[in-house]
Simulated scan of single mutants.
Amino acid sequence: MTSIRTNLISEPHLTQFLFADTRLAPLWALIRIYVGYEWLVAGWGKVTNPGGVWVGEQAGVAVSGFLKGALTKTTGDHPDVQGWYAWFIQNVALPNASVFSYMVAYGEILIGLALILGLFTGLAAFFGGVLNANFLLAGAVSSNPVLFILATWLVLGWRVAGYWGLVDSHRHEMS
């Protein structure tokens, strides 16, 4: 029988303080709730849109418009949208705009609720970051860089970011 020797690498004191010290739980809760609120409001606006361009009879109209706008940003010396992402837009996202429309609208709501409630904080922040990255890759700046940075921090600090939340099983494991 072969045994595998494992070595644990100690965590630097600064990162341990920032990402694992429960004294920072109030700060992380504020960041988590702020990011969650932003996602919830964005998703709710899409789901309740009276024109039904996100969910409903005309689902996909808004996504198609957004994606077609992104494709106009693929030219020049420094395009806002890279060629490989333009391929993804043309061949995957646009043909399935209706599906992506529902995924974005309800995904934003689910991410927002999970972050506000402190439910699966790291996972919710990760998927929020994935959405932000996709919006950025499509050339939409707006609040996406800030939310992407905050989502990344929440992923790093998930233990403390979700400390005051619904899922608290990790509380007993921390020392």
Rank of each mutant, 00 (worst) to 15 (best):
residue 26 P to E: 07
residue 26 P to R: 11
residue 29 A to E: 03
residue 30 L to C: 15
residue 32 R to S: 02
residue 32 R to Y: 06
residue 33 I to W: 05
residue 33 I to Y: 06
residue 35 V to M: 02
residue 36 G to E: 03
residue 39 W to H: 07
residue 40 L to P: 00
residue 41 V to Q: 11
residue 43 G to E: 00
residue 44 W to H: 10
residue 44 W to T: 13
residue 44 W to K: 09
residue 45 G to K: 11
residue 46 K to H: 14
residue 46 K to D: 12
residue 46 K to G: 15
residue 48 T to W: 09
residue 50 P to L: 15
residue 50 P to I: 13
residue 50 P to T: 14
residue 51 G to M: 14
residue 52 G to I: 13
residue 54 W to R: 01
residue 54 W to L: 04
residue 56 G to E: 14
residue 57 E to K: 15
residue 57 E to H: 15
residue 58 Q to R: 15
residue 58 Q to I: 13
residue 58 Q to E: 15
residue 61 V to R: 11
residue 61 V to T: 15
residue 63 V to Q: 04
residue 64 S to H: 02
residue 66 F to Y: 07
residue 66 F to R: 01
residue 66 F to P: 02
residue 67 L to N: 04
residue 67 L to M: 14
residue 68 K to P: 14
residue 70 A to R: 02
residue 70 A to P: 11
residue 71 L to Y: 04
residue 72 T to A: 13
residue 72 T to P: 08
residue 73 K to L: 08
residue 74 T to G: 00
residue 75 T to I: 09
residue 76 G to N: 05
residue 76 G to W: 06
residue 76 G to Q: 05
residue 77 D to G: 06
residue 77 D to C: 05
residue 78 H to P: 04
residue 78 H to T: 09
residue 80 D to T: 08
residue 80 D to Q: 04
residue 80 D to I: 02
residue 81 V to P: 00
residue 82 Q to I: 08
residue 83 G to A: 09
residue 83 G to I: 09
residue 85 Y to N: 05
residue 87 W to E: 05
residue 87 W to C: 03
residue 87 W to P: 02
residue 88 F to N: 05
residue 88 F to M: 07
residue 90 Q to S: 10
residue 92 V to P: 10
residue 93 A to M: 05
residue 94 L to P: 05
residue 95 P to F: 10
residue 96 N to I: 00
residue 97 A to Y: 03
residue 97 A to K: 01
residue 98 S to P: 05
residue 98 S to K: 00
residue 99 V to A: 12
residue 100 F to W: 01
residue 102 Y to A: 01
residue 104 V to F: 00
residue 105 A to T: 00
residue 106 Y to G: 08
residue 107 G to S: 11
residue 107 G to N: 07
residue 107 G to V: 04
residue 109 I to P: 01
residue 110 L to F: 09
residue 111 I to K: 04
residue 111 I to Y: 02
residue 112 G to S: 05
residue 112 G to Q: 03
residue 113 L to E: 08
residue 116 I to K: 02
residue 118 G to L: 06
residue 119 L to S: 09
residue 119 L to Q: 12
residue 119 L to M: 12
residue 120 F to L: 08
residue 120 F to G: 04
residue 121 T to P: 12
residue 121 T to L: 09
residue 122 G to E: 12
residue 123 L to N: 14
residue 124 A to T: 06
residue 125 A to W: 10
residue 125 A to M: 12
residue 125 A to D: 08
residue 126 F to H: 07
residue 126 F to I: 09
residue 127 F to M: 10
residue 128 G to M: 09
residue 129 G to W: 03
residue 130 V to G: 03
residue 130 V to W: 01
residue 131 L to G: 07
residue 131 L to N: 09
residue 131 L to T: 07
residue 132 N to F: 01
residue 135 F to S: 03
residue 135 F to R: 02
residue 135 F to D: 00
residue 137 L to N: 12
residue 137 L to F: 11
residue 137 L to G: 10
residue 139 G to D: 01
residue 141 V to N: 07
residue 144 N to V: 07
residue 147 L to H: 02
residue 148 F to W: 14
residue 148 F to Y: 13
residue 149 I to S: 12
residue 151 A to F: 05
residue 153 W to E: 04
residue 155 V to K: 04
residue 157 G to Y: 13
residue 157 G to T: 10
residue 158 W to Y: 14
residue 159 R to P: 00
residue 159 R to V: 00
